[in-house]
Simulated assay, not measured.
Amino acid sequence: MRIQGCLRSMLVALAVATSALAAPACSKSPEITAESIDDNWALTEQHEPGSVVMTVAPDGQVKVLVKDRDGKPIEEGVSGTVTLKAPGKGGAPTTVELVPEPKSGGVLTAKLPALEDDLTEVGYEFKAKGSELKGVLHVPRGGTRELEENAKNGQDIKLDGTKGPNGGVLQIVGDDVIEIVADKETGDVRVYVLDLNLKPVPIGEREIKLGITRGGGSEVIVLAPGPDRLYFTGKLTVKVNPTKITVVVKDGGHTNVVLCGYRPRSVIVVGPSAPVLGILVATTWAVKVVARPTVVVHDDDDDDGRVIIVRKGKGKGKHKWRHKH
C-alpha cells in the first residue's frame, strides 16, 4: 500500500509539473503586435478612411493592422480577405479570410500560398468602422521585406523630380537606372536603360516586367525587347497614369525588384487622392540610343560628392551606382 501511495504522489506531482510547463504556452505572446508591425518589413497604404499596414512573408504568411484616420489601431470590428493572384498560372486566385491575432492590439493574420514568382499580386479588401479599404500589392519572392531592403539600398541617390530623356519616370533598380515612359495616345510603353548622362544604352540580356496599379485596377506587364534590343516595349490596357509601379529587372542570374519612388518606412497614398506617376507623355520616340556604354574611371581622392557610375561589358550597360557623402 505504501508503494501504491508513493506512486500516486509521484503521478500527482508529475501532472502538476506538466500543467505548470503548459501554462506559459497558453499565454504565449503574439509574434507581431500593433506596436511592432511597422518594424517587421510592413508597407503602409493610406486610404481616405484610414490606413492599412501589411506584411507579406515569402511563405505566404500575411499580417495586417488597420488604423483609423488619426493613426490609431482599430482593435475590434475589422474583417476582410486577402487574395493571391500568381501571374501566368492560369488558375483561380486564392482568397483567404483574415482572423484576429489574440492579444496583438488589432493585428489580423492569414496564410496564402508561398510566393513562387518574381512578382505576385496580393489584393486586400477590409471593412472597418463602416468603411471599405481595398488595395493591391505587387510583391517579390522575398515579400514586403525585399521591397523594404531594396528601397534602403537606393535611398542615398536622389532622382525625385528628374525626368528621363523621353519625359518619363526615372527609377534605380539594383545597378541600373531606367526610364519608364508611355505614349498617351496609344498606351505603348517603353523602358530604357540609361547611362551616366541619362542617355539610353542597349538593354543587353536583361528582362523587365512592371506591376502597374491605378485607380480601379492593376496589371502585370511582361515587356519584350524592342528592335536591336535598344529598349523594352509593352502596352497599357488602360491609358491612365498609374499610382504605383513595381519594377522587376533580371540580369545575369540576378533579380532586383523595387517599388518606384518608395522610401523605407514611408506611407503610400492610394485611392482617389493618390498622386500619379506621370509616365504618359506626348512623344515621338526621337531620342537616340547610345551604341556603346560609357566607361567612367573614378578617382577615389575626388571628394566632390557626385554620384558615380562605372560601366563595363559589351552592350549590356552593366554599371554600379555609388553616392559619396
Score class of each variant (00 low, 15 high):
residue 2 R to W: 01
residue 3 I to E: 11
residue 5 G to W: 04
residue 10 M to R: 11
residue 12 V to G: 01
residue 15 A to H: 04
residue 19 S to W: 13
residue 28 K to Y: 08
residue 37 I to P: 07
residue 38 D to G: 10
residue 48 E to I: 11
residue 52 V to C: 11
residue 55 T to E: 07
residue 57 A to K: 14
residue 58 P to H: 05
residue 59 D to M: 02
residue 61 Q to T: 12
residue 62 V to H: 03
residue 66 V to Y: 08
residue 77 G to N: 15
residue 82 V to W: 13
residue 82 V to Y: 13
residue 83 T to K: 09
residue 90 G to P: 10
residue 90 G to T: 14
residue 91 G to Q: 12
residue 93 P to Y: 07
residue 96 V to T: 05
residue 96 V to G: 02
residue 103 K to Q: 09
residue 103 K to V: 02
residue 109 T to K: 10
residue 110 A to H: 04
residue 112 L to E: 01
residue 116 E to A: 14
residue 117 D to P: 00
residue 119 L to R: 02
residue 130 G to S: 02
residue 130 G to W: 01
residue 130 G to C: 03
residue 131 S to H: 13
residue 133 L to A: 07
residue 135 G to N: 05
residue 139 V to C: 05
residue 140 P to D: 09
residue 140 P to V: 10
residue 145 R to F: 01
residue 150 N to R: 14
residue 150 N to Q: 11
residue 152 K to P: 00
residue 152 K to D: 03
residue 155 Q to E: 08
residue 155 Q to M: 10
residue 162 T to C: 00
residue 162 T to L: 14
residue 168 G to R: 07
residue 169 V to N: 03
residue 171 Q to F: 03
residue 174 G to F: 08
residue 174 G to M: 09
residue 177 V to H: 09
residue 178 I to R: 06
residue 180 I to H: 00
residue 193 V to P: 00
residue 195 D to V: 09
residue 199 K to S: 12
residue 199 K to R: 15
residue 201 V to L: 05
residue 205 E to N: 15
residue 212 I to C: 03
residue 215 G to V: 07
residue 216 G to I: 06
residue 219 E to H: 05
residue 221 I to L: 13
residue 221 I to C: 04
residue 224 A to L: 06
residue 228 D to L: 02
residue 232 F to C: 00
residue 234 G to A: 07
residue 238 V to A: 12
residue 239 K to H: 04
residue 242 P to E: 13
residue 243 T to D: 11
residue 251 D to K: 07
residue 254 H to V: 06
residue 255 T to D: 05
residue 260 C to S: 08
residue 260 C to E: 10
residue 263 R to E: 11
residue 265 R to V: 08
residue 268 I to W: 14
residue 271 G to Q: 12
residue 280 L to T: 12
residue 297 V to P: 00
residue 300 D to G: 00
residue 303 D to E: 07
residue 305 G to Y: 07
residue 307 V to A: 04
residue 309 I to S: 02
residue 310 V to W: 01
residue 314 K to I: 04
residue 316 K to N: 12
residue 318 K to N: 12
residue 322 R to G: 09
residue 323 H to D: 03
residue 325 H to Y: 09
